[in-house]
């Protein structure tokens, strides 16, 4: 049976795994229990800085520490990273200080807290910042591996993690995971589905259902939205001739936009974008939200057929 786990747990584990590097510090804004930085805090209280419920301050404390030679990992809910956007822009991205920001509980998949907690624009806004790497991994293994690659990055980053458990895809496949490189999970020549985060497993389900209809899909885990893996997009666009993107994020500005931006400048292929249809969410279970937002496997499969029909 497929192991289920939350990406935020992979983040928490990675912080512990990184602790051997004495320059790694953790910054919290009263949500360490939720973002999973609490494990680091318990083990290394001297290297954990509580910033209270103050995200703007937290990010710039991180900037000051990065400028002083430390490697800060700051986390809060994805939605609350947004109130510190200008700090990220002016105090971190502009001077290119390697602060690593993690926004957990991203997307509508976060569920019953409702729309106030369901960030659907974080990937879009951070993607607009020069120097910032943007990621949204799909399982705890890839989250851990990508997080552990961050200290070597030398530039700031934003990573969205999710609250709820999703199928684990990468047990024993850690070596395949690299920042900036999408991963082909299943191969087919009719259509390519490019997904991130919680919609990667939905895309695999969609590919299964399409297979039953004789349609063979390539599914890509595009865990890094910026820099986008343009080489891989070219490869799958050439092979399949039609693409679908899938993300638990506003259809404006996220993965779909990143893929579209690459396609229009490089290669022609029809693209269907599955994402939150420019509306706010509501309270509901994670699986219910995927249906309400029309981003579940069913809708991804429909989009795939539409993309193929446009070839």
């Amino acid at each position: 049976m497929t192991r289920m786990a939350a990406t935020r747990d992979g983040y928490g584990q990675a912080l512990l795994d990184l602790a051997g590097n004495e320059k790694v510090v953790v910054l919290e804004a009263d949500l360490g229990k939720s973002t999973k930085s609490l494990h680091f805090r318990k083990a290394y209280p001297d290297r954990t800085i509580s910033c209270g419920i103050g995200e703007q301050n937290m990010l710039l404390v991180g900037a000051g520490m990065a400028a002083s030679g430390y490697i800060p990992f700051a986390s809060t809910f994805a939605i609350f990273t947004e109130r510190a956007f200008e700090q990220m822009r002016n105090g971190i991205a502009r001077p290119n200080l390697a602060v690593h920001l993690c926004g957990s509980h991203g997307g509508t998949h976060t569920g019953t807290d409702g729309s106030s907690a369901q960030s659907i624009e974080d990937l879009a806004i951070f993607r607009t910042l020069p120097n910032v790497v943007v990621m949204h991994p799909c399982d705890d293994v890839s989250t851990r591996v990508l997080t552990m690659q961050l200290p070597a990055l030398g530039t700031p980053s934003y990573m969205r993690t999710a609250r709820n458990k999703t199928p684990v895809l990468y047990d024993g496949r850690e070596d395949e995971i690299k920042i900036g490189k999408g991963i082909i999970l299943t191969e087919g020549n009719d259509v390519a589905i490019v997904a991130c985060g919680v919609l990667v497993s939905e895309s695999l389900k969609a590919a299964e259902s399409l297979k039953a209809e004789g349609i063979h899909a390539t599914v890509v885990d595009m865990h890094t939205l910026k820099p986008i893996d343009g080489e891989l997009i070219d490869t799958i666009a050439t092979r399949c001739g039609a693409l679908v993107t899938a993300e638990d994020h506003n259809v404006i500005g996220g993965l779909g936009s990143a893929v579209a931006e690459h396609l229009v400048a490089n290669i022609f292929a029809p693209l269907e974008m599955v994402g939150v249809p420019d509306r706010f969410g509501e309270s509901g279970q994670a699986d219910e939200m995927l249906e309400v937002m029309q981003i579940s496997a069913h809708y991804i499969a429909l989009a795939a057929k539409k993309a193929i029909s446009r070839k």
Partner: peptide
């Protein structure tokens, strides 16, 4: 520090001071 947007320097200074203490 790259300033210009008000309300940021004190937080940055806090980060520098925290780093100095850790060092």
């Amino acid at each position: 520090f790259s300033a210009g947007s008000l309300g940021m320097g004190l937080s940055f200074g806090m980060g520098c001071a925290t780093a100095a203490r850790l060092d």
